[in-house]
Amino acid sequence: MDDEQTYSLYSSYRSVTAPDEGVISVDVSRDTLVDSMTDMSETPIPPDIIASVDNPTENEEQNTKLTLAYERLYEIPKTIVERFSDHIRYLDISHNKITNLDALVFFRNLTSLIADDNPITENCCLPPLPKLQLLWLNRCKISSLYPWVGKLKESCPNLQYLSLMGNPAAPSYFNGGTFYEYLQYRLFVISQFPSLNHLDDRKVTDDQRTESLRLYKRPFFERMVKSAGFTQLNTLVNTSVSWNTFQNKISTFLGKDKPQNRNLLI
């Protein structure tokens, strides 16, 4: 996205004068957040926001961090975008009601995003964030890993830290997933991000990266999709499906049983 397109989007974003449903506006002069829908009429602005407004040059590192956690937001307020998007690198919007992250397109310098405990689904696609290195989406509502992860890769190609724990699409013992399902999920995600160093609560090892590329190397899937007789696989690749469905159909296609004696370090 070039500067002209971003400016056009930004102008459109600022031009909306009618209050958004459920969006909390910011009145910096009164140090409050004002909700246009719910019974919560006023909530104090987090202290770090006030500090960054009152002392913009006092602490350069602190001025790049913005926390909006536990504010019952339905989206990132326009006033926040206008005031902070140019210089914020660390943004925490966890524990809110946010389902749309389009406003992040204006946070060009964002390197860390914490969005845990929001009702974000696989239908929510992040805008281009080439500088983003850390992304936490724990305990959200992401139920389909594919093709959502591919879109995430396009938006955030330089991720080094990614955590999706607690989502239906991230099977684990905590949400009823088997070890095999967890293993396949982990290797698939690793295969999509060459720079990923840490996934969920564990470091990405060299063995895992090697195995992920062997199992999920992109040209292999492209050849299968283009080959005659793979209509079902083509449908699978181009639609959102549960991880169970994805790995089961791939296993069926390959004609292989689940590995019993693999020695992968997880």
Rank of each mutant, 00 (worst) to 15 (best):
K256M: 11
L196F: 08
L162C: 01
N261S: 07
S251V: 10
I142Q: 01
V225K: 12
I114D: 09
N100T: 05
Q260C: 08
R262L: 11
S212K: 03
Y10F: 13
K131P: 02
D39N: 09
L91E: 10
T239K: 01
N244I: 13
T111Y: 09
V23R: 08
D207A: 15
R214A: 14
I93V: 14
P47N: 14
D257L: 05
L265E: 12
K217I: 14
S195W: 03
A169N: 04
T64P: 00
A69M: 10
L162W: 03
V225F: 07
H95I: 00
K65V: 13
K203G: 00
Y146D: 14
V204F: 02
D54K: 15
L68S: 08
N263D: 12
F174C: 06
E154I: 03
K217N: 15
D201M: 02
T111K: 11
L213T: 12
P130S: 14
T57K: 10
E42G: 01
S36L: 03
C140M: 06
P19R: 04
F221V: 06
N138Q: 13
T252H: 11
N63A: 05
T245S: 13
D257Y: 04
S251D: 09
P157Q: 14
H198Q: 10
I76W: 04
D3C: 10
L236F: 01
N175D: 10
D20I: 04
A69E: 14
Y173T: 08
S251C: 11
T235V: 03
F221A: 15
N138F: 01
K131A: 11
I45D: 08
Q5Y: 00
S242R: 06
T252M: 09
K217T: 14
M40Y: 03
S240I: 04
N261M: 05
V237D: 11
G177R: 08
G255C: 01
A51H: 14
K249I: 04
L162H: 07
I80V: 15
S41C: 06
T43V: 15
E222T: 13
E61K: 11
Y161P: 00
L265M: 08
N100S: 11
F246T: 02
T231R: 05
I50T: 15
D201T: 12
A18G: 05
